[in-house]
Design a protein around this nucleic acid. Structure first.
Lengths: 196, 196
DNA sequence: TCACCTTTTTGCATTGACTGCAAGTTATGC
DNA sequence: GCATAACTTGCAGTCAATGCAAAAAGGTGA
């Protein structure tokens, strides 16, 4: 069974990728990111240095973890949504967060670290590049008359708001994802008012 | 004369910093950014490798060039401006662009390179961090009732729009800065409409 | 189970980024 | 001029990252 073969391997691959990320974050928390070397991560994760670089192109990528895209159904739902742009976007984000692996605790660690390590903040922001592209396409699908540059800009703005909301959410133990998304929507509305 | 003393040294320092940037960009254009080594830049610029790292913390920073802030008067003017947020922001950007050293050609090269080298695009974006902070403070000064997180978000959005406008401006030989800023304002207005 | 093929892991060698240090050079203030 | 602070440089060393080829799994099919 080809499917099984691939699945098995893929599963193991994902496991290792996550294990590496866990190790990286854990080490960064205990000894400080600047003291974490590739060799240390590899040893700690029980792999060779060379294998580490097989999984991630560099240390920052390891801290951020495996790349995640919006789930296909979720993005399709957004693309054909009839609500306001922001409400549908908020739903998309909820779907995204619930679909994907990294637990709140992992995100919390990343954000806490990003506060101290600017490069990590960059890298974290950076991993949204692919998401922005997805979002931008979906926005165009919703509204065929919009021009691509504007769509891209809107997508970026939405992701900015989303990042801010995730930041608030991750540092507040009691906040639900839905509450965070409400903040997200309101904040972006304020921005729109201020700008428009 | 203290002023003269400082000025002389500072002037030389700036010259060298710019020379290094020029060399870096020139090399990147001719042999490709990935083949540009610190040693090559240093040799070409007539300094030692160690001195290169005295001026810039890394190669990317050298390509982006010396950090630039909004001129004090310009930011003060924006902070007390009575026009719409966007119009005043556009004026701020015009002041910024005309005050600061890098010529259009330099920016054009950076943007062209950034298209091929993602890390460079990141670095270029990244250099706006300090600007965002300035802008965010000024926004709060304009409107004391705004909350800091929203102000930060607005500042980021404005800078996003600005970057997009600069991109368009730099690749179009005939476009004036004012025309670019008009695009900037309109584009952000579209975004506000779409979101609000 | 065995021979076979693909994917993954690993060690090794190498290049290049970047830092700390200490000594030399230059500019400036007095 | 001389003392001082700023700047430059060479050197030695650490660590990130890559290419390569051999070894080890993992899975397939007879």
């Amino acid at each position: 069974m080809k499917k099984c073969t691939l699945s098995l391997r893929e599963r193991r691959r994902n496991q290792t990728a996550e294990e590496i990320q866990r190790t990286t974050l854990h080490l960064a928390e205990s000894i400080g990111y600047e003291h974490v070397t590739a060799e240390l991560i590899a040893t700690e994760a029980g792999i060779s240095v060379r294998t580490f670089f097989n999984y991630y192109p560099n240390k920052l990528a390891a801290a951020v973890g495996p790349e995640a895209l919006f789930p296909d159904e979720a993005i399709a739902h957004f693309a054909t949504g009839k609500g306001t742009l922001l409400d549908d976007a908020a739903q998309l984000m909820v779907d995204h967060m619930s679909s994907r692996s990294p637990e709140k605790s992992t995100i919390e660690i990343i954000i806490r670290l990003a506060d101290k390590v600017p490069e990590l903040a960059r890298a974290f922001m950076d991993c949204s590049t692919a998401l922005i592209r997805q979002l931008s396409s979906a926005i165009i699908e919703r509204n065929q008359t919009i021009d691509p540059v504007t769509a891209d800009l809107i997508a970026r703005v939405i992701m900015l708001g989303f990042s801010a909301a995730i930041g608030a959410w991750s540092t507040d133990k009691d906040m639900t994802i839905d509450a965070a998304m409400e903040i997200f929507v309101n904040q972006l509305r304020s921005v729109a008012t201020a700008i428009g």
